[in-house]
Design a protein around this nucleic acid. Structure first.
Length: 404
DNA sequence: CAGCAGGGGGCGC
DNA sequence: CGCCCCCTGCTGG
């Protein structure tokens, strides 16, 4: 990624921010939850008319989640609010490093600008031919992809409408693989809700070039069959097991085995078979001391050791002993070797334990993301449908650093 | 800083 | 297939 491109991106986001901060846009009002919303200056009847008109009906027919951006002659900017559902950010502890502290908010305002050709989308190649995109600038927040684990996208002002007033798009980003769950709740049309509820998307995180300081999150849509079978995050094991009853392995062209339930792949059948057991609720190994059950004898043995006080891993430098080797290694790092293998790529900070994306947290780097969607035109409205793929590029402003 | 559950690679049988 | 080893994630004091 060339530095000039980074600069361009930053400028574009900056422009969006400036728009958002312009005084004549003083329609915003600060609410108790910290979410900044823009006041609607149309009458409720006008709003209702728009909500119930063509675009929404089309969304029903087309079975797709739509982000409908009504054209505006006055302004080409739109404000969405990302509402954090599961916010895991924690205050940075190392205050003595003169680091920015994290300002926790319940919601994050984002500005969505009317997309135009070439706007913000930087990735070269075929995707660039899709000239329309929506850029989301997450401002003054310190987000790692993990922290953006679940965000709800609410359209809160008149220029932005989703298919339903109550529609919400929940985005779940796991660390290396996860799900995006789309939720459509439509009181006026239950059919729409049934068809679009809990669509599941896979999120794949990959680094760019080896020399590139960026992470690309690629979101791919699962097919309808998989959507029906996909367990949601909160479902019980039994449900999970049920969904895997009909699971099948997919053997790739290169002799790799792909799990249909998650993103696991292995070149070995034995590893694959063992992995598939993790998708069942079967735990045949019982602890007779507490009746807790485990999947493997190894897990059971470690557990029983916690009852009996058996600690096979003894520290040579003190009298501490541990149930697992990992505990011993960690202990030795803390107490004896003082080894801190996890180093910040931007400063001298190092840690004994893994702190993913610590760099961004520590240094208060603005994370910006560009989201591409595919546009269509319906009844003179511009409709943005969820593409079958998204790409999120997480940048660290102009000063990009390796995230991993 | 420690306790503990869980997952996967590798290897011997 | 079973086991060892290592690693990871979550949790709590």
């Amino acid at each position: 990624m060339a530095a000039t491109e980074i600069s361009v991106l930053s400028e574009q986001f900056t422009k969006i921010k400036e728009l958002e901060l312009m005084p004549e846009k003083g329609l915003k009002e600060e609410e108790k939850d910290g979410v900044c919303r823009e006041k609607d200056h149309r009458s409720p009847s006008e709003l209702e008319a728009e909500r119930t008109s063509g675009a929404f009906q089309d969304s029903v027919l087309e079975e797709e989640v739509e982000l409908v951006l009504a054209p505006s002659e006055e302004s080409e900017k739109y404000i969405l609010t990302l509402q954090t559902v599961h916010f895991t950010s924690e205050a940075v502890e190392l205050q003595d490093m003169s680091l920015l502290s994290i300002q926790q908010q319940e919601g994050v305002q984002v500005v969505v600008q009317q997309p135009g050709p070439g706007l913000l989308w930087l990735e070269e190649g075929p995707r660039q031919s899709l000239q329309q995109c929506v850029a989301i600038s997450i401002q003054q927040e310190l987000y790692s992809p993990q922290e953006m684990e679940v965000l709800q996208f609410h359209a809160l002002e008149e220029n932005v409408m989703v298919a339903s007033e109550d529609s919400k798009l929940a985005v779940s980003l796991a660390e290396t693989a996860g799900l995006i769950k789309l939720e459509e709740e439509q009181e006026k049309n239950q059919l729409l809700a049934e068809r679009t509820k809990e669509q599941l998307f896979f999120v794949e995180t990959m680094s760019g070039d080896e020399r590139s300081d960026e992470i690309v999150l690629t979101v791919s849509n699962s097919n309808v069959e998989e959507q029906e079978d996909q367990p949601t995050a909160g479902q019980a094991d039994a449900e999970k097991a049920k969904s895997t009853k009909n699971q099948r392995k997919t053997k790739g062209a290169k002799g790799t085995f792909h799990c249909d339930v998650c993103m696991f792949t292995s070149s070995r059948m034995s590893s694959f078979n063992r992995h598939m057991k993790t998708h069942t609720s079967e735990k045949p190994h019982l602890c007779h001391l507490c009746l807790k059950t485990f999947r493997t004898v190894t897990l059971l043995r470690n557990h029983v050791n916690t009852h009996t006080g058996t600690r096979p891993y003894k520290c040579n430098d003190c009298n501490m002993a541990f149930v697992t080797s990992g505990e011993l290694v960690r202990h030795r790092r803390y107490k004896h070797t003082h080894e801190k293998p996890f180093k910040c790529s931007m400063c001298k900070y190092a840690s004994v334990e893994v702190k993913p994306f610590l760099d961004l947290k520590l240094h208060g780097i603005l994370v910006e993301a560009a989201v591409q969607v595919t546009p269509s035109v319906t009844n003179s409205r511009i409709c943005y449908k969820q593409a079958f793929y998204y790409s999120y590029k997480i940048y660290a402003g102009n000063n990009m650093h390796s995230l991993l």
